[in-house]
Simulated scan of single mutants.
Amino acid sequence: MPIPADDRRARILDTVRALGTVRVVDLAERLGLPAVTVRRDVAALADAGRLRRTHGSVSAGGPGPGGPASGAPGSAPAPAPAPDRPAEAVTLGLLVPAVVQYFDEVITGARTAAAGAGVHLVLGISSYEASADRVQVDQLLASGVQGLLLAPNWSAADRPEEHAWVAELPVPAVLLERRPAPGSPAAALDAVGSDHRHGVLLALRHLTGLGHRRVALAARTDTWTAHQVRQGYAEACRTLDLPAEPVIDVLTPAAGVDDVAARLAGAVSGGLGAALVHNDQDALQLLPLLRARGVRVPGDLALVSYDDVFAALGAPPLTAVAPPKRAVGAAAVDLLVRRLGAGGGALPVHHLELLPDLTVRESSGG
């Protein structure tokens, strides 16, 4: 049976008074309660002037050392915290799989939002290996962060239970550019990301609007976004009543692009008129390889790239799907700050998907 909030908070007060100062994580473990619940109760008690919070720890007393308790005769009331803001300055940890241009923009958006909210941001960089995520997260937690922004290394082959560890973290967390499986433990976390399925639909709708009825997809297999793009392609073909072409695998920027160019050139000779390529880097490498095979872009093949990081630098400049990378970073920070300011659990869980745009340039023709 759940413990009533008043009873929980009385136990928290008794424990903190006995210990003097204790980390919220240790307090939750001592009481046998979920950390997010204890964090919410501690926030309520601190707002009432019955406890003090300082950077992940809590201590007995009112608003200040030696000061009167809130509500004592003749005492001034403690200033109320700003709505939807943490009661004290906090540090947020940000985990990204690599500092590449895509996540550079996500980081920029997060930094701008963090500065506006008066919180500090600490960056953890993982490799594209799932095992490295937990090491980096442990280091961020050891540094004293009060919340986490996470872009873990998930793949389509993962089982949902393999993601359960992110739901067991001792501090609130927001997933970045990751969509937790419905019903999985991670689905209880906040998440902010780009709706890549919508982005693919934008690209294919643009190309069909130019009269193309056959649109190929060339995409990577090694990233979360690539899998979302592949799923979006199948859905968009059904929505637009297009035949789904066999997806052309792009291996890495250093290998496989020449093979992709050969397959696209062969498909053009068989009547293919358009292609979507994930990502910009691979699409840019394809341009000279296609020219060498006598395929003109956009004369013979209308080309759209995905990410819009380097697309404008192509010859010709590439029409591109542009996920709202900076807005994702900013929205994630804003949500986490609100979550901390509301004491952890006062807000419903948010799964936010921001819609990409399509930037039309020369490569798609028309």
Rank of each mutant, 00 (worst) to 15 (best):
L27A: 01
A346P: 00
R53Q: 14
V268E: 08
L19I: 01
E168D: 14
G66Q: 08
Q139I: 00
I248L: 15
L286R: 01
R197V: 03
H55N: 13
R178N: 07
H227R: 12
G329H: 03
R230M: 11
L347N: 11
T21F: 04
M1T: 11
R9F: 02
A43K: 00
L94C: 08
Q281K: 10
G365T: 03
D158A: 11
H55G: 11
L92S: 04
D249G: 06
V36Y: 06
A188D: 13
P253V: 02
V122Y: 00
V257G: 03
P68S: 14
A216R: 04
V360M: 07
A234I: 02
G345A: 11
L150H: 06
R111Q: 11
L355K: 15
E362T: 07
G124Y: 00
L355P: 08
A254F: 10
A255R: 13
V360D: 08
P97Q: 09
A311M: 10
V309I: 13
P68M: 10
A76G: 08
H212A: 02
H351P: 01
P185F: 10
D41S: 12
V304L: 13
D334T: 15
V360A: 07
H227Q: 15
L318K: 08
Q231L: 14
D308T: 09
V96C: 00
D7Q: 13
A188P: 04
L31W: 01
P79H: 05
D241C: 15
E362C: 03
L355I: 04
Q285G: 11
S70I: 00
R50Y: 04
L347K: 02
